[in-house]
Design a protein around this nucleic acid. Structure first.
Lengths: 340, 340
DNA sequence: TGTTCACATGTGCACGGTCACAAGTGTGAT
DNA sequence: ATCACACTTGTGACCGTGCACATGTGAACA
């Protein structure tokens, strides 16, 4: 590791000012490209900056302006495809807008952990927070701590308000369910996500709504944990007494586990059982069989999310209401009419 | 969004000091739990802090101390399971150590993009950088910009030095290759990652080394892009003239694509072709057939990475050399002896 | 030629901490 | 009673930038 022992201080605007023969304020004006600066002066200052390899000190800037230009992300399950894609998109969009991003991961979802993560973000003086850990409890804690910065939540019910932005999960779930019903299925199970995930709840609601609307009797959804492992275990049990012809899984990973269990039970997909997933992860097209699923545009979501959040920051102008991001049904080979 | 119009300034140490009847310096001492402070004074100050909901201002602290307590992550493909897991682990470990983390994603791998991302990090005055975008070019740029902060790279050749820390990719690849050879395969293809990824190169080297050591003739590896889609396309071509009995894919996603293509071509796995992957993503156990692969402990890697980086920061004591993180072969059902 | 005004630039302080140094207090030894 | 010394606390400057305000300059106009 290279280390300059003489401990040279990084050049400041005053260093630049001295060498350029101007005042530090002029340098500051160049930095913030203030309109009324003579071109020649500006050029000279820029030249010196370049020579000195000057880099503005962010801490000083944040201190004097009282703004950190940082937004925080509060996330859970950040290793999964959906959240990871959104996070990446958020970071890119924020960087584009000149903001820094700081992510706090939730390992567990107890109140203490949520509080610790939020504190971590607040200590950084984030100007806004994006929540991608859509457990119901997170919002309780947010209110409880009386967080004063604006926040936006990804993945919610599809209902748009100041705080929420999402793919319309309910519509997506209805799409998937309707697809199965249209194929002729009448005994359809739903493998849902964890109970306290708003997202899981929305998909479940979409499923139940559509079943109700189409007048198809339903059974209670099974609550899972998003993992393929869980899907497999749930599948082992379900396929031991197959009193149904289709399953709508609330994500692709659990659907994968289900298909694995179906093979173990000697059931053909889609011959004996139809399966629909949710998310359309890049691997879904290569599952066996290729999975019919609901596609969400996570990147688009991340971008819009940043736009919405930034528009809520003081000093920025509010943007117009956004249309919801609509999900799309991708029909592949894991669904077919039931074989009676 | 709640907004206090009176624009109340957040309380500072001087506010706390005034109310506690002490000097601002005493408050500062409490904050940094300096040894010689009377218990009663400390208690009083803490009480006032609590009353005022005082939160130290990070910018001011960073400015006066000249340390940001922030580390940067430079990453590419951050939506994939491996990198995402490591990133999450790094964030957790850093937060535990009292550091903040800022991530810059690489969308493209041209020099300009790398430079922009690095600049973004340097502008934040990160004290160290973790590189998880192990393209060869990244390091060129790092040197070229004469980045002065310590940096550590994840996923390298398995050779440990000040800058690199990784699962021993070469050993992992040898493990996978040896497994195929031990089963009796002699015509083995390798589906590698992108050429400029150090990681891909290491796995390729491991493959070639083992083939050479076991005296098995090899063909040139195919260069892929890590995606299941690529694996599928490569597979379509390969399986049209199956002059081989096994493939070692340098990650699980491409292996998935290969298996998809094999099914399309009417080839049984492992009956006609054996396939080994790399990474052991959580879904691999549920592929059809369940995938034999090499497991890497990404979390462990992330944690160690932070430990190594922090130990290289001025002021912290260097930690002892770490042992390499060893990969493990996970044998499932996608490999079997060749059927002649 | 003096006045007005826009433009260009400079001066000094504030932001909220930390640091170096000074100073006050109490205890025990002489 | 005096002194040394450890412990506790206070004072003022400083980190690098941006802001409010002051000032200097030249052109347009009366």
């Amino acid at each position: 590791m290279t280390e300059n022992l003489p401990k040279v201080r990084a050049p400041s605007i005053r260093d630049v000012a001295r060498l350029a023969g101007v005042s530090h304020q002029t340098v500051s004006r160049v930095l913030n490209n203030h309109p009324s600066i003579r071109e020649s002066t500006k050029a000279r200052v820029l030249q010196v900056m370049d020579d000195l390899q000057y880099r503005p000190n962010r801490a000083a800037r944040a201190l004097s302006r009282g703004r950190s230009r940082t937004i925080g992300i509060l996330s859970a399950q950040s290793t999964e495809y959906g959240p990871a894609s959104s996070i990446a998109a958020i970071q890119d969009a924020a960087r584009e807008a000149g903001y820094y991003v700081n992510t706090a991961n939730l390992t567990t979802v107890d109140e203490e952990s949520i509080e610790a993560a939020l504190m971590h973000l607040m200590l950084q003086a984030v100007e806004g927070i994006v929540v991608i850990a859509p457990q119901v409890r997170v919002f309780d804690v947010l209110e409880q701590l009386s967080i004063t910065v604006p926040f936006v939540s990804l993945q919610s019910t599809g209902h748009l308000d100041d705080h929420a932005l999402s793919v319309d999960q309910i519509a997506g779930a209805r799409l998937a369910t309707r697809h199965l019903i249209d194929l002729g299925h009448r005994r359809i199970y739903h493998l849902a996500g964890p109970q306290d995930w708003i997202e899981a709840e929305a998909r479940m609601r979409g499923f139940l709504d559509e079943m109700w609307a189409m007048d198809v009797p339903t059974t209670a959804p099974i609550l899972g944990d998003w993992t393929a492992d869980f899907g497999y275990r749930a599948g082992r049990e379900l396929f031991s007494r197959p009193d149904f012809t289709a399953i709508f899984s609330s994500n692709d990973q659990m659907a994968l586990g289900l298909m694995h269990a179906a093979r173990d039970a000697g059931l053909g997909i889609p011959r004996d059982i139809s399966i629909v997933g949710f998310d359309d992860i890049p691997e879904a097209a290569h599952f066996w069989p290729p999975l019919t699923t609901v596609r969400q545009d996570f990147e688009e979501l991340g971008r819009r999310c940043v736009a919405l959040l930034l528009s809520n920051l003081p000093g920025n102008e509010p943007i117009a209401d956004q249309e919801p991001v609509l999900p799309r049904l991708i029909v592949r080979d894991s669904t077919a009419p039931p074989s009676f």
